[in-house]
Design a protein around this nucleic acid. Structure first.
Lengths: 194, 194
DNA sequence: GTCTATAAGCGGATAGAC
DNA sequence: GTCTATCCGCTTATAGAC
């Protein structure tokens, strides 16, 4: 039973505390205690608290992308592939991303008005990945109107995440998926039951 | 040209700074400077910074409710009444609520993990008002399935707000309205063009 | 050479005293 | 209305342990 190195322990502690309690609400001291690491070690590895935050966000982005990938591959048809983001989200939240209250990236955006460079980059990457992927997945369904469909699904996904923050509706993933499905139905150039 | 009393100046300064730059990111000193008020005056009126935050949130809730009211009354039919929340939002954001980055209530939720009592109450009230009203407005459209339709519209509305935070899609209100309209179409027991 | 323990500097924020 | 006591959070310095 090897103990992971300090860097790894710090990242895990950051993921557990930062995105559950909040970034500003979590003092460095608590991160150090949770990780059982000395202050000097944190600053040697990450430079500043912001550096650790950015590294934790990037780790989260990687984990999320992998889960989403898997659900896209496993989906049965075009519509299911576009909706796979919701199944991936449900999966992610009960698995690797369990600690987060809603969405680590949106929460960081909300908390840090003008995020420092490494953090801002992580946030922008998340939204860029969502936009690009959803657009590609919407193309076979909506053709020329794929941008509108992708926007609709992005909004439903974002609404699902913020639904966790609001505490309503009760099951944001289920509602978000239904809403996105309705947007797909409205966007299909062919009649729904053709 | 009378100068408003200190209490009023504080509330205005709070509304302008708190919900634009963030609650934790705005020091009391800045509120005092913006309002041109002495520290003692703030603590005499509101007790603590939290007290001022809660009062500013309540003022915002009142203003929002009035704008929403007006758009519901002016709407032409059942569907338009349910969608009026989006027109109200567009109106609100260019008017009284202009300063806020996305949504004062969700932002406060995100920033303050365990909000103190007066703040938590304001947040809960906002979500309760949304839930009750949307349900009542969904009833004539969806009948027994009104709860599901109300959930869908709430999620689209929440997604619109969080869309401003994310910076995508470009025009969250337009996309949110379209998404909600698709949910209405899917929920109508009668065929859409009957 | 990586990590730990301790302590202390320093800016900033809240709250209340005067 | 000003002024200040007090606290808190981030960061670094120093010295030593595995």
């Amino acid at each position: 039973m090897q103990r992971p190195p300090a860097r790894e322990r710090l990242l895990r502690a950051a993921d557990r505390l930062l995105f559950d309690r909040g970034i500003r609400a979590t003092p460095v001291d608590e991160l150090l205690r949770e990780a059982d690491v000395a202050a000097a070690t944190l600053y040697a590895h990450f430079g500043t608290k912001d550096g650790l935050v950015a590294a934790a966000l990037e780790a989260r982005a990687d984990a999320w992308r992998r889960v989403w990938d898997r659900h896209i591959v496993e989906a049965a048809d075009d519509a299911e592939r576009l909706l796979a983001i919701f199944d991936a989200l449900a999966d992610y939240r009960t698995g690797v991303g369990g600690a987060a209250r809603w969405c680590a990236f949106l929460a960081a955006s909300a908390e840090l008005r003008d995020a420092a460079e490494p953090i801002a980059a992580a946030l922008a990457e998340d939204t860029a990945l969502l936009g690009e992927r959803l657009l590609a997945l919407a193309r076979p369904i909506a053709g020329d109107r794929a941008p509108e469909l992708a926007d609709a699904v992005l909004l439903a996904y974002t609404g699902t995440l913020a639904g966790f923050l609001r505490g309503s509706p009760k099951d944001p993933v289920a509602v978000g998926r239904r809403v996105a499905a309705a947007a797909i139905a409205a966007a299909e150039p062919l009649s729904p039951r053709a």
